[in-house]
Amino acid sequence: MTSSATASATATGSPLISIRNLQKSFGSNQVLTDISLDVDKGEVVCVIGPSGSGKSTMLRCINVLETPSGGSIVVDGMDMTDLDLDIDAARIRIGMVFQSFNLFGHLTVRENLTVAQTKVLGRSRSEADKVAEANLAKVGLSEKMEAKPGSLSGGQQQRVAIARALSMDPDVMLFDEPTSALDPETVGDVLQVMRNLAEAGMTMVVVTHEMEFARQVADRVVFMDGGVVVEEGPARDVIGNPREQRTKDFLSRVLHPGQLG
């Protein structure tokens, strides 16, 4: 298990996210074979790999949008696979950003940012508004407070989605290919917001195809293929100087898409 090396990196206390022997099957189709991964507080981990490698499924298992078939996931001491766990309360502390934004189309940006604050956290309207305004400013969209999601560009919608997740004051943020559905010219703004978030010390797990972002921002890069972690380590190693042949093949495909063979 490659992850045992990283576990030892946690000198003080236990990691914020601890995944052990995670398995996930859809019917007879085994998507995750045996995943073990630790994420420390304040760490930014980028998960890369070919499509169908199980990256998104692994991420969705962390907040149990997918129910794991085996293994354990512990987030800040909460055993996410425990059926007695109050999963709604646990999810409050795990922010999630989706590939397709999933903003609530019938609500304004303000309502998107406040609906869960008032209904789930029980914050007052004025308190929720204050939090929403602060987070919308963080993603540079203060002037869009009263807009409907449908009137925003994809990049703007994704930044609102990030602000919505941040408004719950999560301990960790999960990003599921946040820029894959965007027009190329709006990708930069979203990545910049994520970069700022990383610099502010947010714990982040990012499934992404943006190698440049992973190289610059990630504390650690995890390469997944075929439902297992093939290789993990600092970005300069995994992306700059991969050990495994599968990693090399993948990187040569994504970094030099024009070349064949």
């Binding site: 709604d88 922010g95 989706f98 609530f104 719950m168």
Partner: peptide, 27 residues
């Protein structure tokens, strides 16, 4: 109503019935 709407609501800590009544049914 796209499944992603429920997933987004659940990821914000809403219960499945709250997600149904505040997010899915209005849409």
């Amino acid at each position: 109503v796209p499944k992603g709407q429920v997933e987004a609501a659940r990821s914000l800590g809403m219960s499945s019935s709250r997600a149904m009544f505040t997010i899915v049914l209005p849409q």
